[in-house]
Design a binder for these strands. Sequence first.
DNA 1: GTGAAAGCGCTAACAA
DNA 2: TTGTTAGCGCTTTCAC
Lengths: 337, 337
Amino acid sequence: MVTIADIARVCGVSKMTVSNVLNGHDDRVSATTKARVLSAADELNYQRSAAARSLSVARSEIISLVYYAAAEGDLGLSNPHDAMLLGEIERHISAAGKHLMIHAATDASDTARRLRSWNVDGALFLGVLADEVEQLRRHQDIPMVFIDAYGEAEISTVGPDDEQGGYEATRHLLAAGHRSIAFVGPGASSAGVINARHSGFTRALAEADVSDEGTRVIANLTFAGAESAADDLLSPRGRFTAAVVTADILAIGLIKAFARRSIRVPDDFSLVGFDDLPIAEMMIPSLTTVRQDIAEKARVAVELLMEQLDGQREPRRITLQPLLVERESVGEPVRLP
Amino acid sequence: MVTIADIARVCGVSKMTVSNVLNGHDDRVSATTKARVLSAADELNYQRSAAARSLSVARSEIISLVYYAAAEGDLGLSNPHDAMLLGEIERHISAAGKHLMIHAATDASDTARRLRSWNVDGALFLGVLADEVEQLRRHQDIPMVFIDAYGEAEISTVGPDDEQGGYEATRHLLAAGHRSIAFVGPGASSAGVINARHSGFTRALAEADVSDEGTRVIANLTFAGAESAADDLLSPRGRFTAAVVTADILAIGLIKAFARRSIRVPDDFSLVGFDDLPIAEMMIPSLTTVRQDIAEKARVAVELLMEQLDGQREPRRITLQPLLVERESVGEPVRLP
DNA sequence: GTGAAAGCGCTAACAA
DNA sequence: TTGTTAGCGCTTTCAC
């Protein structure tokens, strides 16, 4: 391994001079020695040791991305949304000259330990758990930004305006003439995202003077979940003519489950999804859905983090406007026989 | 920040003793002091500095996952396959007590630089580029495992047996009675994966005494790509009755494009995909496809890497057996009018 | 403009 | 069983 000592020897200067050159402290070194050092560094293919630097300046230039994986062998990172987000985040972190570590976490203290271990400069959190933030902060008070998180804590967050998304999805169905609209999503235990979307749903119904009684249908984000939700939606037959579905993947499952029951979308039943996954466009029928701008979300998340790294202390909460993408899964209401 | 010096002071022992305790060098320390040190460490909420340790032992416990993102704003990590793989890899790396850094890379020397910077213990490569390995190794000779990579280089690799996959997909169509079968995938410039699958395709056709002349159809993995491929497949009408498609996502696009042209799958045309994405099952029709066991791939990749970290020098090439998952997208051949 | 000394937190090697 | 010394590669401080 080649160190600044090697360069110093080659150039006949001290380590300090080399260090100054390499760090751009131009005022402390003559132009000629600078050139000499630089070319020697290049010659020797020098690469600064991040660990050594980190140790001596007490900054690591590492950003951690922490995502929460439910304990049960469930791989937290398994959907296109997360993948795209991660890819975008990596770009911005790299562009800022920093390094990205990722890890799944199940509990806050373990997470804090790992962040401290590398003296991570800042962390991005993906998923739930905003309320564990205090516990985290107690151990490790570094800049943190929470993505798609809900909670009361005083933290920087980025996420879609889910209430508005739920509202717009519902308005769209109402505008198409639907009055018997279900809200399909994971159960109560789940994250605030769902609740926010549900609030928007409720608001839209209220505005239209439509009751929301008995409209909430629980469905897990699995095939089986879609199957059983389909049964719920269709019994009794004609109970609902449309549904706001909290995830495209679930809407897709529903379309499938409906097909098994000879219910066609949108002819017999209308659906609005959430996310606008790449496949939403490719489905038959293609999915009308509420889009999140993932690239924008990543950009803002990193920006908020950098802001804090630059000294900004007050947390900021950014909500991104959702966009309703109209495609083929919404039609006029039909009463089934 | 609390260091071993703090613990040493509290316990009235030397730093060395603390270090020994913390590293489990039980033979060098009495049970009682060990207990004292341990409880003090716990008390003070001590966390070892990874940077300091890395510096002193010349090992970082960092594994890098490098994936290649084409230059053009294309986010390398955007599909479920990569996301799931990444999630699984993280699990294994974490379980092994190591840390995972990820970064997109466009050229080998940049990549090498970053690996050296953190003195990364080993690296996993996702995607192409196996042939740049020599260039990488020249700069940084650490354990490396290439996932889904093709090339001549002497390296450890994990990947599906694509030739076999292509073979089985084609056999399946032949068995269903098809004789006019196309092979649809990205162009020649693309990775070896495609070529391997194509070899399997050719082999199956040859065995069945079917000519493969003019059977290769080029299609980019985009919507537009699927559209134009659909045109190619259907002109002249009836040229093909089935296709082996090198990616589920492309097969899905094709189904859609076909639908626009009133061609139904599998009634009018049969398709076999590759990957078995989660949505493959959810499509209408659900997709017959060649599955890769992603979790297994991740497991093996990490295993190969650990092997090398443990001193194993000869590279190993592991191919994973593909599994043809029969679903609804293959039917009997029909000559279109 | 340049350099020497000290120290970041840790551990390997050697003494005691 | 425990402690001392030295050093990993870098930067900060202060002197020249």
